[in-house]
Amino acid sequence: MTDPTWIVALHVFFLVNMLLFSAGFLTRFTGAITWIGAMSYVQRANSTVFGLDTMMLILLLYLQIGPSGARYSIDRLIEKWRARRAGLPEPVVEPSYAANFAVRLMQVHFCIVYLASGTSKLLGSTWWSGQALNLVMLNASFAPMDNPAYLWLMKSLAKHRWLWETFMSINILFSVLLELSFSFLCGTGGGGG
């Protein structure tokens, strides 16, 4: 389908669905349509696909497994309003195996993403030489160079070599160690931290 009118109509339809899903209205239906919409965007707009889209699709999939609109949603408000109108007590949100399973899947997937990210950094020579962050933080297409505060910070750091190297090394160590250790310090047990 290449008719611009239909493309705009479909786009608006998916956007409205996403908005309703975010608010938790008819969550089961809007959730599934949102996932189909997000997947369609990713499949059709390859040039704009980014890490964000990948992470969003993962989250959307798990939100279909769990009862996403069970507690903080418009669906829940409607459920309470119906009970009140019928003179019944407020319905209780029962603990759910599906919710627990979905949250656990998210946690495991997050740990895998972090571990893969951390181990792939270990394979990169720029992470060992300490240049990895320079390449991103001084890259005008990534970093907010048009922001005067950011530019001032970068210039101030660059004026003192030792300060620059320390700042970059600490940040590199922090990123790599966090990503490598997250899975065994936070990924098991009760999910606390």
Binding site: G51, L52, M56, I58, V103, Q107, F110, F142, G191, G193
Partner: peptide, 16 residues
Amino acid sequence: GLTTFSLMMMIFVCSF
């Protein structure tokens, strides 16, 4: 400058 990606990851980590 990866604000949307960072926001998504922060939401993801909320699962913990």
